[in-house]
Structures are given as C-alpha cells and as structure tokens.
C-alpha cells in the first residue's frame, strides 16, 4: 500500500479484465482486416480514371477524417438500428464503425503504397496481357502492401488505442471492464492505472517491433 492505493483488488478482477482485453484485441484485428480491405478498394477508386468513382471515394475519406471518432461511434450506434430496423449490440456496432472509419485512414496509406510502385511495373504487367485486375492483384498491390507494412502497423497501434472509445456506447472492452471492476471494488484509480500500463506495454512493444521492421524493409528495398 502506498499513497493510499490498494492494488490487491487487481488479482480477483484479472479474469474480467482479460475478457475486456480480448474484445479490444478482437475489435482491433477485425477493424484492421476490414479497414485494409475496404481502404484498398477506396484507394483504387480514388486512383481510378472514373471521375465519379474517384470523387465519391475522396468525399468518403475526407468526411471520415474530418469527424471526431467519438461522434462516428455514437452516430453509428444510433443510426444503424434506425436504418435497418434491427437493434444491433454495442459490440457489433463498434466493429462496423471501426471498419468504416479506419478504412479512410488505411486508404490514404494504400494510396501512397500504390503510387510507390513504379509505372514500369504496371507497364510490364499490362504488356504480359494482364487485365487491370490482374496487374493490380498480382503486381501492384502485393508490392504496395509490402512497402507499407510498417505504416499500416503504426496505424493499427493508433487504432488499438482508439478502440478504448467504444466504452461510451457500453461495449465491454478493456477500458469498460476496468471501469466496471473499479466501481465494484470501489477502486477506480488503481484499475485505471493498471489498464494504462497494459495499453502502454502493448503499444510500446508493437511500435518497437515496427521500428525493427522498418529497418528491414529499408534494407530489402
């Protein structure tokens, strides 16, 4: 015990916090996969010579990037049931929101990645008789993705931290679990300190890994 803090309440709440962390990680992984897929499609639309498609993608990306994430989370939570007529749980709503929101950021990364592949590579793919889809799928996107792995991972670390915002719609992530456990044991400060440490350790470890990766990518290129 120091400063009047009592960390002994942590042990019994560990299983509960673990469930919260699992949801946070799951949300991150789903938002990352979905966000990269949707983001790549947005990037392709944005780079398309079809004006309508390109403008639509740009409006989507700009809009998402101009609205605070908290508001997007809230609005999706309120709007999806209105639009579909079915109530969706906070957890599913959060997943959809994050895919839609992160796609905007991943799309900017993938766009830079696609542009980092030289026009000569595209010409070589076309010259072999590939269709647009084949040139993109076999030649451009794999190289774009490889070049952008460190940046994509960095964005994912930010995403992992941002998932803590879902506590406002009551989705049971790590932060929400800490809030509940803190209330139950009447020890909120200890709980918040503990989850802050968890977030820090995970994010710090990941960003160190990204740094090492970045060096390797630089060597390969």
């Amino acid at each position: 015990m120091f400063f009047g803090l009592d960390f002994s309440v942590l042990a019994p709440s560990l299983p509960f916090l673990w469930t919260g962390l699992q949801y946070s990680v799951k949300l991150t992984l789903i938002a990352m996969s979905g966000g990269i897929v949707l983001g790549t499609l947005l990037a392709l639309a944005r780079l398309s010579s079809n004006r309508l498609l390109s403008n639509a993608a740009q409006v989507y990306v700009d809009t998402m990037r101009s609205i605070p994430l908290v508001m997007v989370i809230l609005w999706f939570f309120l709007l999806i049931p209105l639009l579909t007529g079915n109530p969706v749980g906070a957890e599913s709503s959060a997943m959809l929101t994050f895919i839609a929101f992160e796609a905007a950021y991943y799309s900017e990364i993938m766009r830079a990645g696609i542009q980092s592949v030289s026009r000569g590579q595209v010409a070589a793919g076309d010259a072999l008789g590939f269709t647009y889809r084949q040139t993109m799928g076999y030649i451009v996107l794999p190289q774009a993705f490889r070049n952008m792995i460190p940046v994509l991972l960095t964005q994912t670390i930010v995403l992992f931290q941002d998932t803590s915002l879902v506590y406002i719609i009551g989705a049971k992530d790590l932060l929400k679990a800490a809030e509940i456990a803190g209330k139950n044991y009447n020890r909120p400060i200890e709980m918040y300190i503990f989850v802050a440490i968890i977030y820090f350790v995970i994010c710090f470890t990941l960003s160190q890994t990204v740094k090492r990766l970045q060096k390797r990518v630089a060597i390969i290129r």
Binding site: A124, D126, A127, L128, G129, F130, Q134
Partner: peptide
C-alpha cells in the same frame, strides 16, 4: 489484354 499477351515487350 489478349492482344498484348501475343506481343512480347
């Protein structure tokens, strides 16, 4: 694409 496949570059 079909035509390009027949022309080497």
């Amino acid at each position: 694409p079909k035509l390009r496949a027949r022309v080497g570059m």
